[in-house]
């Protein structure tokens, strides 16, 4: 396993080097900070979303769920649409980026805590009820968004559309710093939970028998998931166009194939590295080789959708 993690790390380093170096024209003093900022944001989002997905799949004991079913992305797009609707395109564009970031993180964490409250309420509150509630909430938020988008000015609708997909092209260095300040401590806490997550994956009864309170562990993981997803989404935008992000799904499915282990000390770094390779590698191909301006997420959704179907059909165990 260690060998495969080293291999993944090497691949990621190569991908980063190509991203920075390929097609470099012009002054390095301009190019390097510009590309490094984009690269750093991709790494941050790659690690954050991959780790969040692993945590989510562990506490829900389900391999085909990702945190986006909880409606985080839907909330982001709704807030965005609402702001453009109320302030107009120009008004929205003139909002300070840090304020938007703070609003988004706060909104998404609040949504997470609302669902988290549901988990705590009552002895019978279980994690699946929470997921279903999140799913329905997401649908509600999307319907509201769609309703608002129907009433919006077509030009402004174009603007909403263009920022509704994650983009790594315009990342503010100050936002990157903010996002890192939120993401890195959450990642450290997730890493500290690695053995406890292994135990939680055994199921509620067995985990209890081993002295690990499942509810407490699930709640803590959920808080980390909210923070990680909120920080990534607020930085670059939602990774999904609507139906539910397939990015996390691709990452964890690949990580399970590359490093077939259920131990989180293997799974967490493996998923994080895989996520970064997909983002950096994919962005390099899109941007440098194909010279496309299509957001990478559109391609990820397409591949992820197919993979999702394959996983569903292939799945032997419930």
């Amino acid at each position: 396993m260690a060998k495969r993690l080293i291999l993944l790390s090497t691949l990621l380093l190569i991908a980063c080097a190509i991203y920075i170096g390929l097609g470099a024209e012009g002054a390095w003093s301009f190019l390097l900070p510009y590309r490094a900022t984009k690269l750093a944001s991709m790494l941050l989002v790659g690690v954050g979303l991959s780790v969040a997905t692993v945590l989510f799949q562990t506490i829900t004991a389900n391999r085909i769920l990702t945190p986006s079913v909880m409606g985080f992305d839907a909330l982001y797009v709704m807030v965005l649409t609402l702001l453009v609707h109320v302030l107009g395109g120009v008004g929205y564009a003139s909002l300070p980026a840090a304020l938007l970031f703070a609003m988004n993180v706060a909104g998404m964490t609040a949504l997470g805590m609302l669902l988290f409250g549901l988990l705590q309420k009552g002895a019978r509150g279980d994690i699946m009820r929470l997921v279903l509630t999140g799913l329905i909430l997401g649908i509600l938020l999307r319907s509201v968004t769609e309703f608002l988008q129907r009433m919006i000015d077509p030009a402004e609708f174009q603007m909403v559309q263009s920022v509704s997909f994650a983009r790594f092209t315009q990342v503010e260095p100050s936002l990157l710093l903010l996002s890192a300040l939120v993401t890195l401590p959450a990642l450290a806490l997730a890493w500290r939970m690695r053995t406890r997550l292994d135990v939680l994956a055994l199921g509620d009864a067995t985990a209890t028998g081993l002295g690990e309170n499942p509810k407490r562990g699930q709640a803590q993981a959920l808080v980390l998931i909210c923070i990680l997803v909120a920080a990534s989404t607020a930085l670059v935008g939602p990774m999904s166009g609507g139906g539910g992000s397939f990015f996390g799904l691709i990452v964890t499915a690949l990580a399970h194939v590359i490093t077939p282990s259920e131990r989180h000390r293997i799974l967490l770094p493996s998923a994080a590295l895989t996520g970064c390779i997909i983002l950096v590698g994919g962005q390099t191909v899109m941007e440098r080789l194909l010279d496309l301006t299509t957001p990478l997420t559109v391609v990820i959704e397409l591949i992820g959708g197919i993979l999702f179907l394959v996983l569903l059909v292939k799945r032997k165990r419930a």
Partner: peptide, 19 residues
Amino acid sequence: DRDLAKVLAIMAQSTHVSA
């Protein structure tokens, strides 16, 4: 919970493990 886990082991009815 930890202290109890050193004194009492349990084997639940459903031993389904998703991992």
